[in-house]
């Protein structure tokens, strides 16, 4: 089900919990599926002794992918025309992430109804880990 322009207005928000207690195993799953095998994301010994980090941490693209789930669950499948993010803070095993979209504008372009969204994903401490924006086609 796609989002309808008539059901939303500027300032409306939608949010969803996209992961609770992020596991190291999920980081391994993401490494395998994406092909990003950087040991900083899966190799505790490398991440701590060589990298100097407190433990392994999530691929930025995993946080973006999880943020994308909130987005596609809300706007509908195959509706995104743009999706961009900035990786603001690192995401670690054990984190809970909540992703939020805020309606910035409703507009028409080439006969299509579009919604512009601001995106923010925060961890359990309320610290922003991903900020971004997206545009999606919506029904009238």
């Amino acid at each position: 089900m796609a989002l309808k322009a008539s059901n939303i207005k500027v300032g409306d928000t939608h949010e969803a919990v996209v992961v609770e207690n992020l596991t190291r195993t999920q980081l391994v799953m993401y490494s395998g599926a994406s092909g990003d095998y950087n040991p900083l994301h899966s190799d505790e010994i490398f991440a701590t002794k060589v990298g100097g980090y407190p433990t392994v941490f999530a691929h930025g693209m995993l946080s973006m992918g999880m943020t994308g789930r909130m987005l596609t669950d809300w706007v509908g499948d195959g509706r995104l025309t743009k999706f961009g993010v900035r990786f603001v803070s690192q995401v670690f095993p054990g984190d809970n992430l909540t992703a939020k979209a805020t309606v910035e504008a409703l507009r028409e372009e080439n006969g299509e109804q579009l919604v512009d969204l601001a995106l923010s994903t925060v961890n359990q401490d309320g610290r922003e880990v991903v900020s971004g924006s997206a545009t999606a086609r919506v029904d009238p």
Binding site: G60, F83, R86, F87
Partner: peptide
């Protein structure tokens, strides 16, 4: 210990 990290990613579909 400096390192290469991913700062931003943008897609246009």
């Amino acid at each position: 210990g400096g390192t290469g990290l991913h700062a931003e990613q943008h897609f246009e579909y």
